[in-house]
């Protein structure tokens, strides 16, 4: 119970910190009453280095979450791994069970993150018109994105140690944000660059860069591109299926007696 309480407190705290530290009201469409939700969903209006730095700064709670839950599966390899795994009849089933636990913790953390954003928005601006749809999408994106990277950290850590797991995944995430800087003035968002843009996990993470045919459409879609809001959902879903599948496959290949490290990982 204490764990859940801690997660909820951390989630809402990180949202409050994000909102008050990195909110740049002047840059966001002034018709939109829900500035705070936009800040919580990492909305950035351009690809200039300044805005991308703000985006990365507001991703710090995510990185913190990933560091803490990046050892959730890996920890069983650090302490009495032979004892632990010799008592698991089906390792793939165990792995899927652990993945479900990670997704549960991710969901709790980001639910409290989003609920705080809604509370602050309604409390400060009194406007709650489009909050619902935007919040649901932000929540789903954040949960799936962080799940994918948590699993990646766990899997990389098993082979290279947890410090390298963090460095590699942090490198991937930072690089995927840095790459967006080329769309600032050098490359136009059409044709092949647009396709590459749609494959980038960082661009899929930000709801306000997507397009939507519904009511939400006129508030988001900052760059006027065809990038459907549901496609990213499928993209992240497929990524998480792949990573769980690959993890379930390679977890059986690990020889615990050889990989046995009775030490601090």
């Amino acid at each position: 119970m204490g764990k859940y309480f801690f997660l909820i407190i951390c989630g809402s705290m990180s949202n409050i910190l994000n909102i008050f530290f990195y909110l740049d009201i002047t840059d966001i469409n002034s018709d939109f009453g829900t500035y705070f939700i936009m800040a919580a969903s990492l909305a950035q209006p351009t690809f200039t280095s300044g805005h991308l730095v703000l985006l990365m700064q507001s991703m710090i709670p995510m990185f913190a979450f990933q560091i803490v839950y990046g050892v959730y599966i890996y920890k069983h390899f650090c302490c009495a791994s032979v004892y632990y795994f010799s008592r698991q009849k089906n390792r793939t089933r165990w792995f899927i069970g652990e993945s479900v636990k990670i997704i549960k913790y991710t969901a709790i953390f980001f639910a409290s993150y989003i609920l705080t954003a809604i509370a602050v928005t309604i409390g400060v601006t009194g406007d709650s018109k489009v909050v619902g749809e935007l919040c649901i999408y932000t929540f789903l994106y954040f949960v799936l994105y962080n799940f994918v990277f948590c699993m990646l950290i766990n899997l990389v850590s098993i082979f290279t140690g947890s410090q390298n797991g963090i460095i590699i995944t942090y490198g991937i995430q930072m690089a995927s944000v840095f790459v967006l800087n080329v769309f600032n003035d050098k490359v136009q968002l059409t044709g092949i660059p647009l396709k590459l843009f749609k494959l980038n996990p960082a661009s899929n993470l930000v709801v306000s860069w997507h397009s939507s045919s519904g009511k939400l459409g006129k508030y988001i879609n900052m760059f006027n591109i065809d990038f459907d809001i549901n496609v990213s959902l499928i993209y992240f879903f497929v990524l998480s299926l792949i990573i769980t599948g690959v993890g379930g496959f390679i977890i059986n290949k690990i020889d615990v007696t050889l990989e046995n490290k009775e030490e601090k990982g």
Binding site: V68, V71, G161, Q163, Y170
Partner: peptide, 9 residues
């Protein structure tokens, strides 16, 4: 601290 990863925090 048990895991090296936590030392980044």
């Amino acid at each position: 601290i048990k895991y090296k990863a936590f030392l980044f925090l």
